[in-house]
Every structure is written in C-alpha cells, then in structure tokens.
Design a protein around this nucleic acid. Structure first.
Lengths: 105, 105
DNA sequence: ACAAGTACCTACTAAAAAGTAGGGTACATA
DNA sequence: TATGTACCCTACTTTTTAGTAGGTACTTGT
C-alpha cells in the first residue's frame, strides 16, 4: 500500500477539517439514528455551550451532514437529524469508541 | 441500540483527547506500517512545524501509540514506528480517508 | 573556515477555538 | 404583572493551540 504525503489536498486532512472539531463527532454520535430536539441534544452533549452547539449544528447543516426542521410553534421546536451522508460517519465513530473501550481510555 | 450521554467519561471523548489533535492522525497515518526517521516524517507531513511534530511524537510515545529508537550516531538518527496499539488506529484512519474520497472532501 | 545535515529545545508571539454573559422573541401560565 | 420556556444571537474575554525564530552539538564536505 502506498502512502501519499499529507499535504493540504490529502483526503484525511480535508475530512478532519469537517469532523475534527472538539465537539463535532460528539454531536454527530448523539444525534445518531434519532430525531432530536435542540434542548435534548444540549443535555446529552454534557458541557457544551450554546454558542458551540448552535455553531456546530449550523456548520454541519451547511456541510450536508445534519438536517434541521423548524416548527412554527410557540415555544419554538427544532428537530435535528443526520442526513444519509451524516449517517455514514456513524461506523467511523463507533470504531473510535470500540478502540477506546478496548484500551480503557 | 442505546446511546449514553456524552459526559467526560464517555469513551469517544477520551479517545479523541488522544487522537483528536490537528496533526495527530496525520502523523499516525504517515508512520503507518513503516519505520521512518524524524526528518522524513517532517517532509511527509507537509506544513507541520518542528515544535508540533516533536511535541506530538513525544505525546504519542507516552500514550504507547508510537515507539522511538535513537541511534547514538553523528549526525543523529532517530526512528519512529507505530506500536501494536498504534497500528490498531490505522483501520479507523483508513475509514475516514475512504469517507473523504467517496464524497470529494 | 564555513555551510550543511540531523534531531532536537526554548522563549516568544499569533491565531484559532472555546467559554461567558448578556439579550431577544412570542406566548403560556401563575 | 411577573415568570418561565425553547431556541437562538452577539460582543467580549479567556484558553488552547500553533507558528516563528533563535539556539545546541557534532561531523562531513568544500
């Protein structure tokens, strides 16, 4: 197997620019296969600030990883789901979790 | 499948504390199955500063992911390899690369 | 004599990421 | 009238991360 040098066009680098943030995979994993409201998500990702959560969700929507549905209700209701693209990341994340579990990290 | 909340003990979070840095997976992927000298590694991970590379290598050695062998020669020669633990990360990284390739990131 | 190669280290600075604290809406309930 | 809820937004500050520029040691080649 050949290893290309890791320059700015390397697919690993480019993918990590999207999912490599401190909270990104945590959010994606929490959404998982479910439809989840903003408030519940915030409770699940313990310690995240609203600024970060909102910012990441917006970013992930732009990248086509998360989809958002707002209901015109009072009080507001907003639901988040992974897109098909986003769901493709779940096996990757599960592998990282398995690695961590196996080695007591 | 049940999803636990992501608190500070969640295995995803703990694993990402180790491999979630900007350069970490790039370095691990470049070492890969080979034995590589410091200088060559630096050339492969395009754009990394010496401070970062040295710092990350030291960190990864402490975590048991990379092993280091110094030769008492002049000029110095230092070789880096992945440990068995480190090699377990290669499938994870390859999956991230596959994801990136498939979606033109 | 001097530059080049090799693998580092340290102090300083800059940039990026994240956290904090406040505000806003529009209604419903007390 | 005041308070609470849900989903945000913005300005500001702090923390974290990363980059820069300099230095070391020893040897070989010019």
């Amino acid at each position: 197997m050949e290893i290309n040098i890791s320059d700015e066009n390397c697919p690993l680098r480019k993918t990590l620019e999207i999912i490599g943030g401190k909270w990104t995979m945590l959010i994606i994993f929490q959404i998982n296969e479910r439809t989840i409201r903003y408030g519940e998500l915030k409770r699940c990702v313990v310690g995240i600030s609203e600024k970060m959560l909102i910012g990441q969700l917006k970013f992930l929507c732009e990248k086509g990883i998360v989809s958002k549905k707002s209901f015109p209700e009072i009080p507001p209701k907003v639901e988040y789901t992974l897109t098909d693209l986003g769901k493709e990341l779940l096996p990757v994340i599960n592998q990282i979790i398995q690695f961590g579990l196996q080695h007591q990290f």
